[in-house]
Amino acid sequence: MRQPLLLGLLAGLVAALFVASLAVGPAGIGLRGSLAALVAGGDGPAPLILREIRLPRALLGLLIGAGLGLSGAALQGFLRNPLAEPGLIGVSSSAALGAVVAIYSGASAAFALALPVFALAGALLGVLAILALAGAAARTLTLILAGVAVSALAAALTSLVLNLSSNPYAAGEIVFWMMGSLADRSMLHVAIAAPFILAGGIALLTLGRGLDALTLGEDAAASLGIGLAAMRLRLVLGIAAVVGAATAVAGAVGFVGLVVPHLLRSATGARPARLLWASALGGAAVVLAADVATRVIAPERDLKLGVLTALVGAPFFLHLIRKTAREAA
């Protein structure tokens, strides 16, 4: 498919889902009423609900989805491995650990930016651990095993911090950090996450030319003037910023970065540079759709976002493992 057409279709889908995210909720306001309350304001609770509850939720869905889709595409391109994904290789869990330390140590209450900064630091440690364990051109098995180890360690430490907290609600929040949710977030969360996601996203989008060259192999890329070390640094910082900030406000939402690039790879002619843009839009569409679905399926149960993405993503992952194994044999 031609690139402008593909991107146009995806952008249209994202716009439609963004509007749906603004229009769906337990207060039956309706599509027209919702948009009128959002834009024009007025009396009563509707403008407050739209501007303080639904708008931040839709904006976070857009930003986090785009960031996760982009991170997956960039990681897969750089590692030349279709199974690389921030959630599966433990970067999301490491970011969650950083966020949990920020919240339950009281650091984020003293200083709001501590939340994304700690999460970013956690994500950074996670990416560095994976690259150190699995190497740059990672074999699938090593990559997945390293991811399992990093995830397990981060999840255990997260549970430990929550169990040791003096707050009676802390232990119950393990589910949120493992599964993620956008429920009841505010504009404050948008304000602390957006700068990091945007900066990290821009860093990842500029990797396109290098990733395209890298499909020819590292030596060929080097002969084209691509500096692998500089690329790796930008990738690591970009992923850490995006995944760190996203996880800090929404918990660990898995599989988005795995499924979206895979679905769009053939439509982008297997060109990593094109895949980056398409995956950003596709990721936004997936997370917005999943978040709308949590509100439609069980509005009063606070269904977790990561439950839906994992229900779709995990079978996909198994399919990809089988395919990779068959190709390797």
């Binding site: 509850i53 140590s105 209450a109 707050n167 609600y169 009841d184």
Partner: peptide, 15 residues
Amino acid sequence: APGASRAEDVLRHPA
């Protein structure tokens, strides 16, 4: 409650 938690964030929501 003593200590910080995410669960209590919602009680301070601007809405």
